[in-house]
Design a protein around this nucleic acid. Structure first.
Lengths: 257, 257
DNA sequence: CGTTCAGTTGACCATGATCAAGAGTGGTGG
DNA sequence: CCACCACTCTTGATCATGGTCAACTGAACG
């Protein structure tokens, strides 16, 4: 299987052979395994390296003074954990491993060298950064405007498509390692209510979720149930079932459907 | 009064005289006035210029299929309205004028020239982008984990400090042009409940809000009431009342308090 | 001077929170 | 291999925060 970072960046900018080689090299310099539930880095820390997720899931989160925790994004293979390092001195949030994690640690100088010599890669990193910001916006909408079942269904839609874009789905299924408590902390609901909500989605035939595996038999139906519009993910290649047709993306060439 | 963009970017990177001149020049090339409540740009549009807010407030928002609207950020003087233009082809959200607005329109080529010739400015733009992303994260936390009164109070704290950092406060007061309906659309509450919440904050003596003017007699008290921690704004110079002391910012040199 | 929009109030309702207890599952060590 | 522990999931009963609907007030502005 090809490197998830390459796969992901290539989603946006067609990369040359040299670009790919450079990225592959970058990810092999120094890798690290992290146990599930361990923090990769904590709020307040000064980041020393940039992490690239090679395998597993991580969560970006913030903790409030009263102890409550809010997950603000997930990182899956191919995702970078913040370019913060280049600019801001301190982490303003924490990152922890959901599953056992394999990450590449990229030193600042190394990435800097790449950025100055490989313009395609620079553009692609910018793109990844802006897409991640767009995802943040959608999460604000999610917790602000959607009902419990819409929120949870929306999360399933998003993660399925993101996994698909890096080749981590199998037909209608994908690994889904989140506990109901994790889902609660991302949707602003309680774990008890997430449980009831998931049962409702199961009853309606929208998802199958068992033993860390998610199946979405009808993606369009799930999207309808969650007011999901894939545009915010800025995926170039939308798959058959991702509903590229319904949400007008004026003037952009489309495949599928 | 000095240009708000310069003031804002200088907050991060000390700019040279040449940097300042260039920014001033950039903002004077082409300016435009926008009526209150008009959209500056809409979701799906291909942006042609980058906007810099020179005067007034704007709102970034998304609309759902069911018509509900969520404001995902405000733009105040000195803020840039998305560097999207450089990378992503379509707007994934809309921006509309809260008040009458004065904006600078910066053409892509022009900004590109600046970016290649003025490294300080490039760094500062990156910084602005990352801070704006951090603000997005905090908004997720806000709607996800805080109670109604905490959410509304948090918004007051944030906007007050952001205005202060570009010199738009007067002692304990600042202009505050949002309607209760606007506040509802940013906090994920209803306008009716925002009304009751604001009355509660008034009763508790935390804010004075009348005729578009906000006064915060005791910023620390308001911060306590909203679980507010200013770190996420990445302000270099925290003012006296911004509570730099309580929230440990390890190893960072601080002023005030 | 009337029209419009923002703010206010009241009555009632519903979504989701809280508290508590129990069932399934997996991993660990005796 | 089994007993135990911890964690995740599940269910029920009750509660509360904030939503909905509707009417009214007041200020701003043409």
């Amino acid at each position: 299987m090809t490197n998830a970072l390459i796969r992901r960046l290539d989603e946006y900018t067609p990369l040359t052979g040299a670009d790919r080689d450079e990225l592959a090299h970058l990810c092999m310099q120094s890798t690290r395994l992290v146990q599930a539930k361990r923090d990769l880095i904590r709020e307040g820390d000064a980041p020393r390296v940039i992490y690239v997720i090679l395998d597993g899931w991580a969560a970006h989160y913030r903790t409030l003074a009263n102890g409550r925790r809010q997950i603000v994004d997930f990182a899956i293979p191919g995702d970078l954990c913040d370019l913060n390092l280049f600019i801001l001195d301190r982490m303003d949030h924490s990152i922890s491993a959901i599953t056992r994690l394999k990450v590449a640690e990229v030193r600042r100088e190394l990435l800097h060298r790449v950025v100055t010599n490989f313009p395609n890669i620079t553009t692609a990193l910018w793109w990844a950064e802006l897409v991640s910001k767009s995802i943040h916006r959608e999460w604000i909408v999610n917790v602000g405007q959607r009902s419990a079942s819409e929120r949870v269904a929306h999360l399933f839609c998003e993660m399925f498509l993101r996994l698909e874009s890096v080749g981590l789905t199998n037909g209608f299924s994908c690994d889904f390692p989140l506990t109901q408590n994790d889902i609660a902390e991302t949707t602003g609901l309680t774990a008890v209510h997430v449980n009831r909500t998931i049962q409702e989605l199961r009853r309606r035939g929208l998802i199958v979720l068992e033993r860390q595996r998610l199946t979405v038999p009808d993606m369009l139906a799930l999207q309808d149930a969650s007011l999901f519009n894939p545009n915010y993910l800025h995926l170039r290649r939308l798959n058959q079932h991702t509903d590229a047709g319904r949400h007008a993306q004026k003037g952009r060439d489309r495949q599928g459907r």
